[in-house]
Computed example of a mutant assay.
Amino acid sequence: MRHLDSVPERRGLVIFLNGTTSSGKSSIASELLELLDGPYFHLPVDAFHAMRSRAPVPAERLDVVLHRTWRGFHRAVAGMAAAGNNVVVDHVLSAEWRLQDCLSVLVPQDVVFVGVRCPVEELERRERERGDRHAGLAARQLEQVHAHGLYDIECDTGVETARECALRIREFLPGRPRPTAFERLVASREHRG
């Protein structure tokens, strides 16, 4: 058996899927796991919320609990990538601070930022069909989720299947340009600050 100290150091790639709830991020992530070479981990933000105990949280503390959950999620993703694991992230950047936090903890050149878009009518249809989401949630998230305006690649699940989106992402990876969207967003933030 190989000694752990002989495992070569490397940083993992982060394929960061950002879109509203019901936009198709999880379906694209599942397809990517089948299509991409080497092991990838799918880390959806919903899984972190599901890990929380079912003990009731008083309404006045809910924002703090959710904030800590998202911050922990971002650091878990960063930790997996720092340990050399490739990660597919499934997230809803529906608040500016979430993007800023991700920009501060992830290595910008190792992130492929993917905008997952979907027409509002289709989002509403999917919400009704799923039945586990608040009606209109995706429509309310739509403007803020894509407010930063920069992606490495975008897909529209109202036009393309999850498989087609995943194939386009896979084809994009080998020649992805620099600076990455995350690098440009970090530079923009530093220029403003």
Rank of each mutant, 00 (worst) to 15 (best):
M1E: 09
L4T: 11
D5N: 13
V7Q: 06
P8A: 13
P8Q: 10
E9L: 13
R10Q: 15
V14L: 12
L17M: 11
S22C: 15
G24P: 10
S30P: 04
L33I: 11
E34I: 06
L35G: 04
L36Y: 14
G38E: 10
F41R: 05
F41Y: 15
F41Q: 08
F41K: 07
P44S: 14
V45C: 07
V45I: 15
F48E: 13
A50L: 07
R54W: 04
P56E: 14
P56T: 11
R61Y: 10
V65S: 02
T69H: 03
W70P: 00
R71Q: 15
F73M: 12
V77H: 02
V77W: 04
A78K: 11
A81T: 08
A81L: 07
A83E: 14
G84E: 03
G84A: 10
N85Q: 11
V88T: 07
V92E: 06
L93A: 13
A95R: 15
A95I: 08
R98H: 09
L106Y: 12
P108V: 03
D110F: 00
D110R: 15
V111D: 02
V114M: 01
V116W: 00
R117Q: 05
C118Q: 02
E122K: 14
E122G: 05
E122Y: 00
E124A: 12
E129Q: 08
G131K: 05
H134G: 09
H146L: 06
H146T: 06
A147R: 15
Y151G: 02
C155L: 12
C155F: 04
D156I: 02
D156F: 01
D156E: 09
T157S: 07
T157R: 05
G158W: 05
R163N: 02
R170F: 10
R170H: 08
L173P: 07
G175L: 13
P179K: 10
V186Q: 01
V186T: 01
H191A: 15
